[in-house]
Simulated scan of single mutants.
Amino acid sequence: MTKQIVITALAFGAIILGTHNIQAQNTTATTAVNITLNDVISIDAGSTAIGGTVAFNYLTAADYNSDQTITKTNSLKVTSTKNFNVKVKAGGPNFVNGTNSIPVDVLTIKAATAAGTMGGTKNDVILSAGEKNLVANAPLGSALTLNLDYTIPAAKSSSSDILGKPAGTYTQTVTYTATAL
């Protein structure tokens, strides 16, 4: 009989402890989620300045005696996690056609009237082989666009900088650099 009481007590204890264990089980779980950020600054694909061409044509006397402006939409599309500057420079001091040359300072680059979504202080830049600020302190953002006007003023096209040069195509590269602040 003592055995039965002990067995019953143990069975009863196991039932109580078993029920208690079921109630003590976890019903929630937590997980840590990490987001790792890196600083990014990029002139994005879709920028017409990447591999693009700006072509001025002087075919008539009127062309030489007037300002010529070519507007390029989405010239630059920049994504940056910090405020940034955009600088511009020519690949050398002259537009070149064989041994003939035209100084790069005949060209002015500036933000177009409909400048795009890029903020900051925009400057008119007379092109040179040295870097110049085209946009200063542009606020961070994603796929910010800048539309550019390329202008050769009549004062340059009707001067000896261009007049008297042999016919042909004169070429120079223009490089844009976005730099985080």
Rank of each mutant, 00 (worst) to 15 (best):
A45E: 10
F84W: 08
Y176S: 07
T71N: 09
F12D: 00
A155M: 12
I162L: 15
L140A: 15
T19K: 02
A115L: 06
G98A: 09
A138Q: 05
T36N: 15
S157Q: 11
P93Q: 08
I22Q: 11
A61M: 05
A24E: 03
L144P: 03
T31E: 03
T53R: 07
L17Q: 01
I22R: 10
T177D: 00
A111W: 02
L140D: 06
P103K: 04
A143F: 14
I126D: 00
D149Y: 12
T79M: 09
L163Q: 12
L163S: 07
S47C: 11
K87Y: 06
Q25S: 10
S157Y: 09
Y64I: 02
S47E: 05
T53I: 14
K156R: 13
K165S: 07
I5K: 14
P103C: 09
A138D: 02
S157P: 12
S128M: 02
A180I: 11
G168N: 07
L76G: 06
T121P: 09
V88Q: 04
I102N: 03
N133W: 00
N100T: 08
T169W: 05
A49Q: 04
L146W: 13
G164R: 08
P139E: 07
F95C: 12
G168S: 08
D124G: 10
T169V: 15
G51Q: 06
A55N: 11
G168H: 06
I126K: 08
L181Y: 08
T28V: 11
I16Q: 01
V174R: 02
G51E: 01
S42E: 07
G168L: 14
G141N: 08
D105Y: 05
G119P: 08
P103D: 10
T48N: 15
V88F: 09
T36F: 08
T175M: 10
L37G: 10
V106D: 00
K132I: 04
A62Y: 03
T81A: 05
D105H: 10
S47F: 15
T169F: 09
N21C: 11
G46L: 14
S158R: 06
D67M: 04
P166F: 09
M118I: 14
G51T: 04
I15G: 04
L59Y: 00
S47Q: 10
G52N: 01
G141M: 13
Y170L: 10
G168C: 13
G164V: 14
A45Y: 09
A154G: 06
M1H: 07
F95K: 04
F84R: 00
P153G: 08
D124R: 09
G120Q: 01
T36L: 13
N21T: 11
L134I: 11
S158C: 07
Q25Y: 15
T30N: 12
G130M: 07
P153R: 05
K156G: 05
N133Q: 03
F95D: 01
Y58E: 01
G18A: 14
S128R: 01
L76A: 08
A9H: 03
M118N: 04
S159E: 04
N100L: 11
T113M: 02
S159W: 11
A55F: 06
Y58H: 00
L134V: 13
M118C: 08
K110H: 02
T19H: 00
A155R: 07
I35R: 07
N137A: 15
N74A: 13
D39G: 14
K110Y: 01
V54A: 04
T36M: 07
V125T: 03
N21I: 15
I70D: 04
A62R: 09
N97M: 13
V86M: 04
N83A: 15
L146T: 09
N85P: 02
N38W: 01
